[in-house]
Amino acid sequence: MSDPLVSIRNLGLRYGTFRALEDVSADFSRGTCIVICGPSGSGKSSLLRCINRLEEFQDGDVVFDGASLRACRDLPRLRSEIGMVFQHFELYPHLSVLDNVTLAPRIAKGKPRQEAEETARRLLDRVGIGDQAGKFPGELSGGQQQRAAIARALALEPKLMLFDEPTSALDPEMIAEVLRVMRDLARNGMTMLVVTHEMAFAREVADEIVFMDKGRIVERAETARFFSAPTAPRAREFLDRILHRL
């Protein structure tokens, strides 16, 4: 694995005395889609949030595209290269969908409004909600909101997309439309780290699965191998439970 886009090195994160992440190391190459799964509280979201330093980790480092996050002096610029999609969408309720998407390109990157709006409309079309551009987030369904949030993240032309349980807050019938957009992104070569419980999505789209438990990566395997023969007992147990819950 030469020249990984993200390289996590002995990462440690504590909240007070609770160790959310302990000695986590992993490399992720460009153009791959990695699904991170594991029981709740296992540190999946914390790991994602360390990668754009929404969490301030105490130990180790994350190297993104050759640059150390610990040494980073220009976080906004770094973050503008990493798109993030949240469980609860976090669209800005006081701005239209179009303004949600154009805000960061205009404010953070200084793009002229017209150019930003052209890009935004193209992205909204791509996620299938081009006709909703003038509406406010509150007027959209959950699935549409999450797709708008994906468009907002894509507007900065990120090198990496982080998805933090993007479908966990959605009704079942809306999950599919969001996953379709994500699948489309992965097929177009976007580097993606996805925290999700959607095992069908993982099996179909992910190149590799990372399984976490108690703040550590306990298994990492190619998707097919992970589902057919997980080596870590904890991963096997988790898979059994999540796949046979019906």
Partner: peptide, 8 residues
Amino acid sequence: EAALSTGL
């Protein structure tokens, strides 16, 4: 956090 994550 959403705003910060977009580079603001």
